[in-house]
C-alpha cells in the first residue's frame, strides 16, 4: 500500500500531511486535521452528512480519497463564520429553526452554500432539489428550505447594500 503527501488548503490554511492511499477525505478532515464539524452518516454516499466544498463544489467527502485532493482547496463548516460573524446560511438555520439534532446540519449548510453560489435566487423547488443529496431525519426539511431562503435574501440585501455604499 502506498503513502502520499497531501498538500491542501483547508479553510484558508495550507496543510501538509502524509497519509495512506486509502484514507478517505472525511477521515483526513476529522481525524488528521481534527475538524469534527464534518460528520459521517452512511457508507454508501447517500446521506451527505460529510459534505464539504472541494475547489468550490459541494462533494461527499466519504467518497473521495484524501490523496486525490492534493493541491486542492477545501472548505468545511468551521470556516463559514468570519471573524465571529455568522454566515447568512448559519444565521438562517438559527433564525428559522432549520436544525434539531444538528448532525446533518454542517453538510446541509455546505451543500446549500454551493447551491447559492451557483444560483443566488433559487425557487423553493430548486432548493429542494439542490439539497436532495443530504438527508435530515429531524426537521422534515420545511424549515431548512426557509433557512436557505432567508440566507438568499440576506445575501442579496448584503450585495445591494455593498453596491450602494460603493
Amino acid at each position: 500500500m502506498s503513502r502520499h503527501t497531501v498538500n491542501v488548503t483547508v479553510n484558508g490554511e495550507v496543510v501538509s500531511e502524509e497519509v495512506e492511499a486509502r484514507m478517505l477525505l472525511v477521515h483526513f478532515i476529522r481525524e488528521v486535521l481534527d475538524l469534527t464539524g464534518t460528520h459521517i452518516g452512511c457508507d454508501t454516499s447517500n446521506c451527505g452528512a460529510c459534505t464539504v466544498l472541494l475547489n468550490g463544489r459541494a462533494v461527499k467527502s466519504c467518497t473521495i480519497f484524501a490523496a486525490q485532493v492534493d493541491g486542492g482547496t477545501i472548505e468545511t463548516i468551521e470556516a463559514l463564520a468570519v471573524d465571529g460573524k455568522l454566515h447568512p446560511l448559519q444565521e438562517g438555520f438559527w433564525e428559522k429553526h432549520g436544525l434539531q439534532c444538528g448532525y446533518c446540519t454542517p453538510g446541509m449548510i455546505m451543500s446549500a452554500k454551493h447551491l447559492l453560489d451557483k444560483n443566488p435566487n433559487p425557487t423553493e423547488e430548486e432548493i429542494r432539489w439542490g439539497i436532495s443529496g443530504n438527508l435530515c431525519r429531524c426537521t422534515g426539511y420545511n424549515k431548512i428550505v426557509e433557512a436557505i431562503q432567508y440566507a438568499a435574501e440576506k445575501i442579496e440585501q448584503g450585495d445591494s447594500a455593498e453596491e450602494v455604499s460603493a
Partner: peptide
Amino acid sequence: MKRKEDPRFIQGKGRYIDDIK
C-alpha cells in the same frame, strides 16, 4: 425563542460520540 443550543451546531462545534478522542 431561537434555540440556545444552535450556535455550536451551526458552526460545526457540536460534540458527538465520534468526536470524542
